[in-house]
Design a protein around this nucleic acid. Sequence first.
DNA 1: CGCTTCAATATGTATATACATATCACGAAA
DNA 2: TTTCGTGATATGTATATACATATTGAAGCG
Lengths: 247, 247
Amino acid sequence: MDVTEAISADAEPASLHQRILADISDRIMSGEWAPGHRIPFEHELSAEYGCSRMTVNKALSQLAKAGLIERRRRSGSFVRRPQSQAAILEIHDIKTEVAALGLPYRYELTSRRKRKSTPDDRERLGLKNSGAVLELTCRHFAGAQPFCHEDRLVNLAAVPEAADESFEENAPGPWLIGRIPWSAAEHRITAVGAEAETAAALNIAEGSPCLVVERRTWSADHPVTHVRFTYAAGSHALVARFTPSQS
Amino acid sequence: MDVTEAISADAEPASLHQRILADISDRIMSGEWAPGHRIPFEHELSAEYGCSRMTVNKALSQLAKAGLIERRRRSGSFVRRPQSQAAILEIHDIKTEVAALGLPYRYELTSRRKRKSTPDDRERLGLKNSGAVLELTCRHFAGAQPFCHEDRLVNLAAVPEAADESFEENAPGPWLIGRIPWSAAEHRITAVGAEAETAAALNIAEGSPCLVVERRTWSADHPVTHVRFTYAAGSHALVARFTPSQS
DNA sequence: CGCTTCAATATGTATATACATATCACGAAA
DNA sequence: TTTCGTGATATGTATATACATATTGAAGCG
């Protein structure tokens, strides 16, 4: 969640604890209360606003969860120095992404192989035991041009139904999303020079710069899938919205 | 942020509302409660757990803020379908990043120019009015090799003190962090082929693939800085942790 | 049959109260 | 002077209660 959620600069928060929260957050953002500053005690704020301590507590607890302040028993609450910046990266469906460009979308399956997992596969999936996996490569087109090359490994132990799906019509990404609730995932974003296979798939010169997004997904501690998306440089940018700090 | 914040799979949450929150979140994650499912009413849960409605309310409110459920008056609370996947991208300080590689860190200022903002500057900063800006370019080294090229624009209207700082010793990033509380930022991650200037700065061939991270920062609606970090491909990867759904 | 009205219901917010818990400061004992 | 204990203090959690508010479903009326 974004945890912070419209924390400041709102028109007129309806509820009292939201107003208190916004007031304090504004004073921190404006620099009036610098990092390290002790904000008034709960009982002081409750007196100031003429409300109960619980109401103030609700506001301060949310500020603490948002990482704006730090609460210390017996000492009070203090403005925190934003420490580890965290950005919220929204991962869009490729189809909608292409649609946003105003171009017609097309999906094409390039290859589909079922096999016993190799050590390399297990490495990619973060799998310990051997088992069957499904490797899919495919292309996503924006108009006539290939937009994205996808190389995906699916753990058939976690998603046995995938063995019965051809993926000639449906891209594996949306198919999996609609089937598996996931609890965790990990992204890795890098730049590479295109290798022969992806260069051919994307219709670009070998060695030309590409953006690579790798994603590993777990559902309840079981590895589900690993996917590597490759975009030609310039065709794609990842955009992230920022939120100040997180615990 | 994370609102979500350690929402599930914890050892043993101390407080009751945290336990309720974790229980529900687990049932959603496991798929037991599919999207659209109506979770028990507050009064039912309070009966089940033998606690007051306020305690249940606290848990459910947090789940709603985290985006896992949707609450509707008179109807109840429903499991939401994760819509836009969002990943939390942690942005680390370059110095600590290099330190994590076990290499000695060095910072070097390449250029420093103060000027009236050009239209291009205003475009980069998202600035309407003209005003003075400071452009800095610098390099971050990991061992003997240049690790990152930084090109930064600082809005002097928002940070006048920056005009008096030489930035020969201190990198502008940490300097700004310690001075300006920010409320929002926007990231853009792309891949490019190195241009002449950055290729020279990074000691790589022109046109070789690079990862570019651009960041625009606001403090209380005022543009503060725009920075473009360029890393040679292979030297750097952005890693993001996933959280399911967000509002 | 369609419209309005109304009451029932679940959530949203706020209160006063209570006790738990971590921590700091001060003073007593070694 | 150092160490230990003890009380004061601010936050953390939970409760029972109250009323506000949005929404739904059903009753009542034209």
